[in-house]
């Protein structure tokens, strides 16, 4: 595993040497900012109305974390379901399309090192995006008094969720030479996992419901948005990463012996 940092560093450099990652991050920040300030503005209007009408007892119900931060982060997670496949699409598909994967496969690097190195590079990108996202709640801390730990739970949840679907999208990228196919399939898979909860409700079998609800992603990031950090959810995202990275490694390994 000693080559992993070198691969990750190479991938990060490569990501920032083309405008794609910048454009994606820029678009994400624009949409996220638009949604966040919409939510914050709505909160301030509610606050003004409460004060204007003297409904001071309602002030006890006003909560920046639930009304602004958690709502916004719920939408950010949906944005991530679109953004992460685009960030991951080039991970393996580009190498396969250009043929540079041959160089990697014939080098002394193991498949695990290649997969983990590339995955860590994507995680670094995701960490950067989450850190930039943290600027929004930071503004609330400058002008208000939201709860710190609940906000940290929101950030942790957003990161864990994105890390989980990044592993899935890496696997998809390893299956194809086309970046567009990788992005589209990754996006469909991410969105399907996001809405699986709703599909669970329409089945009558309790076992199927439980399985679908567990497999779906939304039930695993919603508790975190409310400030409830559950081992089950962290394990879920960890397991998701482990399963898809091992499948990704199998896909990469198969390129050696096929």
């Amino acid at each position: 595993m000693r080559h992993v940092p070198a691969i990750a560093a190479r991938e990060i450099r490569s990501a920032f040497s083309t405008p794609v990652a910048y454009v994606l991050i820029s678009a994400y920040l624009f949409i996220a900012g638009f949604l966040f300030f919409g939510s914050f503005g709505f909160f301030l209007i509610q606050l003004q109305q409460i004060q204007a009408y003297g409904l001071h007892h309602l002030l006890e119900r006003m909560n920046l974390n639930d009304i602004v931060i958690a709502q916004s982060f719920g939408t950010f997670a949906t944005l991530m379901a679109f953004l992460v496949p685009l960030l991951c699409m080039r991970a393996f598909a580009e190498e396969r399309a250009t043929g540079s994967i041959e160089l990697l496969l014939t080098s002394p690097l193991t498949s695990w090192e290649i997969v983990i190195g590339k995955y860590l590079a994507i995680l670094a990108l995701i960490a950067l995006i989450v850190a930039l996202t943290a600027l929004f709640p930071a503004l609330l801390f400058a002008y208000g008094d939201p709860e710190l730990w609940q906000t940290l739970a929101n950030l942790l949840t957003l990161f864990a969720y994105s890390a989980g679907i990044a592993a899935l999208c890496c696997f998809v990228s390893a299956l194809t030479r086309s970046q567009i196919v990788a992005a589209v399939v990754g996006l469909i898979a991410s969105v399907l996992l996001l809405v699986l909860d709703f599909a669970a409700e329409s089945t009558s079998s309790e076992v199927v419901q439980q399985v679908l609800r567990y497999v779906g992603t939304s039930g695993h990031f919603e508790p975190g948005l409310r400030g409830q950090v559950r081992l089950e959810d962290l394990t879920y995202f960890g397991v998701m990463a482990l399963v898809f990275l091992s499948l990704c490694r199998a896909a990469v390994e198969s390129l050696r012996w096929r």
């Binding site: 974390n65 709860e147 730990w149 609940q150 940290l152 739970a153 567990y214 409310r226 400030g227 409830q228 950090v229 559950r230 081992l231 089950e232 394990t235 879920y236 960890g238 397991v239």
Partner: peptide
């Protein structure tokens, strides 16, 4: 691991 985490729930409440 997933099965064990569901069977043995551990929650941390990060709200004040």
């Amino acid at each position: 691991l997933a099965f064990l985490s569901v069977r043995n729930p551990v929650n941390w409440d990060w709200t004040e």
